Simulated scan of single mutants.
Amino acid sequence: MSDVLYLAIVASLKDKILKSQLKPGDMLNSETALMQEYSASRMTIRKSLSLLSNEGYIYSVPGKGNFVCKPEVDIFQFKFNKYDGLNIHIDNVKLISVKVLLPAKQIDRILKLEDNQKAVEVKRILYSDDREIAMEIIYLPYVHHQPVIEDMLKFANYMKPVEEKLAFVLDKSLDITVVMPSDEVRETLNLGQNEPVFEITELIRNEATQQMLQYAWFYVSPRYLSIKAATPKDSEDKRIF
């Protein structure tokens, strides 16, 4: 019965917070007052408050009491895949080059390569109706005796099977900026002299093994990619932890 009661207390206090009956910074009633309000034991009240604290709704100040957290309104949530996010269909991928080499120090450090370990450098172009839409430069750790499968790299989202297999341990980070492209990118994509591009830097890591799987730059004109985000629908995603 106490387990059901403590969850009911949690739901009641959450409801008051979400309806602004308890506002950010407000102090909750004392444990004694909550015991009387909900006809519950001190242990049950403390269990409820602990869960609310763990979920980020309240925080405790020793010697003072429990207070409502201030929600973070500047958190935005968006689902992003640089291939599926294009507003144009990719119907062909052309490999410019696939090389096994000793990478620059920056790449070596990011991929956490062992001493003298090589990397695979892939450069490719994504097309739509024979138009160059995007250019991608990819670095993968090179594993001796493990062949580079060029046929796989001809698919736009070639990492998808890997991502699906490792979904629960995959860690991805993105850095999206607007830059003036290098001469190589400008010429490859037939861009105007002063035409900017999105530069999307992506690092993919196996969180379970700490192995770096890929580091890549993706260049595309803003004409073909738009990025949208919204505050989370679930109020729980707005909390500060």
Score class of each variant (00 low, 15 high):
107 I>V: 15
121 E>P: 00
135 M>S: 05
102 L>V: 08
116 N>L: 07
123 K>I: 11
119 A>P: 02
120 V>W: 09
139 Y>A: 02
127 Y>W: 14
122 V>Q: 03
114 E>L: 11
133 I>D: 06
99 K>G: 03
119 A>G: 06
113 L>T: 10
129 D>K: 14
128 S>N: 15
108 D>Q: 13
128 S>D: 12
106 Q>T: 11
140 L>V: 05
112 K>C: 09
114 E>P: 00
100 V>A: 01
139 Y>F: 15
126 L>M: 14
130 D>P: 00
140 L>G: 00
105 K>N: 09
98 V>L: 02
133 I>G: 02
113 L>I: 12
131 R>C: 07
102 L>M: 11
136 E>V: 13
139 Y>E: 01
105 K>I: 12
105 K>P: 03
134 A>L: 02
129 D>A: 09
111 L>C: 04
125 I>N: 07
108 D>M: 07
99 K>Q: 15
100 V>T: 14
138 I>F: 02
103 P>A: 01
113 L>Y: 09
114 E>K: 14
127 Y>A: 06
118 K>H: 07
130 D>A: 11
126 L>V: 08
137 I>K: 08
109 R>P: 00
126 L>R: 06
108 D>F: 11
105 K>L: 11
99 K>C: 07
138 I>W: 01
115 D>Y: 04
110 I>M: 08
130 D>L: 12
98 V>C: 12
107 I>S: 06
135 M>W: 01
140 L>H: 06
106 Q>V: 13
98 V>G: 00
139 Y>M: 04
114 E>Y: 07
98 V>S: 13
116 N>G: 04
102 L>D: 10
120 V>N: 04
118 K>S: 12
128 S>Y: 10
140 L>Y: 12
132 E>G: 03
130 D>G: 04
138 I>G: 00
112 K>M: 10
115 D>E: 09
120 V>T: 12
117 Q>F: 05
118 K>T: 10
100 V>R: 08
102 L>F: 09
105 K>E: 14
122 V>G: 08
139 Y>R: 03
132 E>P: 11
134 A>T: 02
122 V>H: 08
99 K>T: 12
99 K>E: 15
101 L>S: 09
132 E>Y: 07
102 L>A: 09
137 I>C: 04
138 I>C: 11
137 I>H: 05
106 Q>L: 10
141 P>L: 11
97 S>E: 14
135 M>T: 01
140 L>M: 11
105 K>T: 14
127 Y>N: 08
118 K>F: 07
138 I>A: 10
116 N>M: 10
112 K>N: 12
117 Q>T: 06
101 L>E: 15
108 D>P: 00
97 S>Y: 05
100 V>E: 09
136 E>F: 04
121 E>Q: 15
109 R>D: 15
120 V>I: 15
130 D>I: 08
136 E>M: 11
113 L>K: 13
129 D>Y: 03
